[in-house]
Write a protein that binds this DNA or RNA. Structure first.
Lengths: 104, 104
DNA sequence: ATTATATATAAATAATTATTCATATGTAAA
DNA sequence: TTTACATATGAATAATTATTTATATATAAT
């Protein structure tokens, strides 16, 4: 029995596709095929992402007939998602990197 | 003026050193030299990490004499940090990846 | 003005992570 | 008991990201 670290939570959420999957699972539990369909992404890639999420403790899964159903490991992840979205929407900034300065 | 995306917040926090720096800044504002000293990490690497954080809108900085002082761009990041830590401590899991199974 | 101090940057390399493609496995239906 | 379907896996490659090293810049002190 292991604890997930906050660093690993950030790592898992820092990939666009993994984040999208997690957000979908925060709405409802889904079979792999449904996720493939809704995202339009290749099945093996989706399976890889789901494997990473599972192995890092962010999701759980069980078989139901021919399908494997995935869900969030904990509702506390929903809170994470909403708090981070809120933080993002609160912070305005002027990027001062070289490229951005050129466009001023 | 731009908005930070939640994806970029996750990306910035998904690096061990950037996360450590952000956690330090959530306690108090710090000069680059202080961060170098407390972490024991090379100055140019710290400066790179600080640059990434700055360019992505997570920190702000100003000059004070010879020093440059960094601070969090918003207190909402403190909430992010604590909510994610809490989520991590709530989730127990049994990793079912190949390597972990071997150790059972 | 020259030197010291603090920080930033650029270029090169190293390391990690993501994606693709081919194939395997497990369950269910015919 | 073969065939179809859903999902998983492994190996190869591609892409991204991190780290190092050397050097530049900006301010302050002498």
């Amino acid at each position: 029995m292991e604890k997930i670290t906050d660093l690993n939570i950030y790592k898992m959420l820092s990939d666009e596709l993994r984040l999208k999957i997690l957000k979908m699972l925060s709405v409802k539990n889904m079979a792999v095929g449904e996720i493939v369909e809704k995202t339009g992404i290749d099945q093996p890639l989706i399976s890889h992402k789901l494997k990473e999420l599972r192995e890092n403790g962010l999701t759980v899964s069980y078989r139901s007939g021919k399908n494997i159903i995935y869900s969030l490991a904990s509702d506390s992840l929903k809170e994470v998602i909403s708090v981070v979205e809120a933080a993002g929407s609160k912070i305005d900034y002027v990027c001062n990197c070289v490229e951005c300065k050129e466009n001023d």
